[in-house]
Amino acid sequence: MRFPTSAPPHVVAPNTVGRIMRLVIYALLPTMALHVVFFGPGLIVQSVLAIATALAAEALALRLRGRPLRLYLTDGTAVVTALLLALCLPPLAPWWLVVSGTAFAILLAKHAFGGLGMNIFNPAMVGYAVLLVSFPAQLLTWLPPDVAGLRSVELSFSQTLTTILTGQLPDALRWDAVTSPTPLDALRTSLAMGMTMQEARASPIFGTFGGRGWEWINLATLAGGIALLLLRVIRWHIPVAMLASLAACASVMYALDPGTYAGPMFHLTSGASLLGAFFIATDPVSAATSDRGRLIYASGIGVLTYVIRTWGGYPDGVAFAVLLMNLAVPLIDRYTIPRIYGHPRRP
């Protein structure tokens, strides 16, 4: 009897890129749900726009590069990029912002470098950074969270949709009536105006740890991140190193001068710290690849995030920190090759 042959191993685990990306998307859902609870349905509109743009851009790029459409369109990577970018944008940002940012991320940051697996920068963060430096005013215009005493105007879904698509608020509403800075932005502005940390934190937008509402969203992100850890989609090195180095920087400066510098808990629960640690910095393509390399890579992100937030020109620094460390990845990888079995040590 004759048999077909094949190369070993003859068994492989039923794990695919598509499955990993699906799990990442599921793990993002709690964060997105609480985001909608606190900031209204804007995120839903932004996500739909981002996903549609990402898939269209991906299809265009694949067609131009002559790659199989179905295989790559269903791998979920474009959707993850789209969702991460949508989560970073203000809920009422005009449609062209999310569309151009996503298209830029997919076409230039991803496919111009060779597509999946070849991009040296995190595509979502490239998209966000381009928008942030090009349109800082729109990007920093956030809404107040829907907690007692902060929200005065309630926008319905259709009003939200109209606002995003036209860039105009519904009748008789003015932008300064509906907007509010993010906690990091607010703290920064207050400190710049000469307030002490105590006076600044007295504002009603702050809760026990960070911004009210934001604390809960970040808690959901933490839960999603822990789920990814338990499902072994990501490993502990990057989130732990990034959060630890961010907390360490914050603790040192807080210990030196608690009147000028926010404490570690505030930094960990504000802005994109947790989203960055579990969902953005862990993008394996643009991260360092050995365990030790990942610890160095993520520690660098933590330090840079703190430096940019505290002394830089932008309220949050996760995006720039990630991009800067992406830049350092080839160097880190070069110097963190692990010792091989049976070798004394790396020469």
Partner: peptide, 29 residues
């Protein structure tokens, strides 16, 4: 007994391979 391979995709440098390598190599690299 066998497991059908799914279509090959580019390496995403996830590092699962280096985690399981008994020779402590970085198969992705």
């Amino acid at each position: 007994d066998l497991q059908q391979r799914a279509p090959e995709m580019p390496c995403i440098r996830c590092g699962n391979c280096s985690e399981v390598c008994p020779a402590f190599l970085l198969p992705q690299q």
